[in-house]
Write a protein that binds this DNA or RNA. Structure first.
Lengths: 239, 239
DNA sequence: TCAAAAGTGTTATGATTACACCCATGA
DNA sequence: TCATGGGTGTAATCATAACACTTTTGA
């Protein structure tokens, strides 16, 4: 077992097996009841104990930064094979009060139905927050969140990534409400249907909703293979 | 004066005043004779002496990463107030052979007419290379270049940033050729004119080209203030 | 007068928008 | 039967693409 060392730079206790002046922070988006939410952790130790922040951690010396982000997410949520993309690095010299630490932001889209969130060993509490009810966050995590929201709004219109926030089977209205919530606008239902169906990215599952007090909607599934094939033929997702 | 120290991690000689496991690398785009080019340096020292790579360097402990990128660019090219945006961090564990170093990629757009390029103290030679004549680059610089090209192609269609590659006064044909070169396609001249002029982002300078052996074209200038005002009114640049 | 690029006009096509309207289902 | 959302139809408008054509300039 590797011994812990005190990092001269920061005064923090850091394992010798991790890089000592770079961290990773993750913005994890979920979608519940037509609301966009993000996952925050209440820090259980350190100088900002008790305050909410983004989940994050250190990078092991032998793992890539993408691997580190995936590992941290897995440790926190139990989620594997998740949509996860790097945002950018954040490096204001005073962003972290106890020393110079640069952090690399990542953002993830998760299907909240599928996974149970569990508090990790450095977090006393983990919870989902609606995007318009986010508390003040530690360090520069507010900025990281704002940048990732902007990135999400851009990316969701350029590539079919929104599906990662939905259950595998979904209705067209759910999909439209997802777009409405992320982009902050209202859309015309008939036009949305036609526009999306015209792209032929969705597989009709020949099933319907059950136990709804209105006409049951068809269920669809997004098929990434179809998307890849269309892309090769020159198709360009735009919304 | 600060003394130099040997960094245990990498074996490289690194000043005590810089962070020791993070660097910055810049992809600097220029546009000359209807060709997109990038600026490369031939390394004058280190294990990869004599090979071409992206200009880059270390981050001082008291400067932000954006400031570091600007400073490095200034040292290399003498250019200030340049279009410069962060790309992303690159962090494969074996990307740098002599130790674990994460690099943050930046890309810049410069008006090559305006500035003289000079070799810095760590580079023996500096030169522009056409985008389709890039030699093999050191480390993972090929990947950084490919990612920044992709980013440039995306961003040039989403925001009016292409002007940074042109002289201050330019013709519509120059602008169209810039788009054609970056996006790798051919466009229809009449349609391009109308589409761009309709946006009302360009200021007609009431001047014409001189000494051309064809009908002289009107000169235009891009006005960022106009763009900002239109953006506030809900205008969205799309190309 | 020729070549080269500037610049205008026109038409067909397709996407987008706005909105009216009918259908199915459980409470 | 009512409320709720599912789902189709249609017409006006707007952007895009394709291409024919006229204009200006120096060599």
């Amino acid at each position: 077992m590797k011994k812990n060392i005190i990092n001269n730079e920061t005064g923090n206790v850091v394992k010798a097996s991790v890089m000592n002046s770079i961290t990773i922070d993750c913005v994890i988006f979920g979608f519940q009841n037509t609301k966009l939410e993000i996952l925050l952790v209440k820090h259980a130790m350190g100088i900002r104990k008790g305050e909410w922040g983004l989940p994050g951690g250190w990078i092991k010396k032998e793992e890539s930064i993408d691997d580190a982000a995936n590992r941290l997410l897995q440790e926190l949520t139990g989620i594997e094979d998740i949509f996860l993309e790097q945002l950018k690095a954040f490096g204001a010299p005073d962003r972290f009060p106890a020393g110079r630490i640069i952090t690399i932001g990542y953002y993830a889209l998760v299907n909240t139905e599928k996974y149970d969130i569990k508090a990790g060993y450095t977090a006393s509490e983990v919870a989902w927050f609606a995007i318009d009810e986010i508390p003040d966050l530690i360090y520069d995590h507010d900025e990281i969140l704002q940048v990732s929201l902007k990135q999400l709004r851009r990316r969701v219109r350029q590539a079919p990534i929104g599906f990662n926030l939905l259950p595998e089977k979904f209705t067209l209205l759910q999909l439209m409400q997802l777009y409405e919530e992320i982009l902050g606008l209202t859309m015309d239902k008939p036009n949305f249907r036609r526009k999306f169906l015209r792209m032929k990215l969705l597989v009709d599952l020949k099933k319907k909703e059950k136990n709804v007090s209105h006409r049951a909607a068809k269920l669809y599934r997004f098929d990434d293979d179809i998307y890849q094939k269309l892309t090769e033929k020159g198709f360009n997702f735009e919304f």
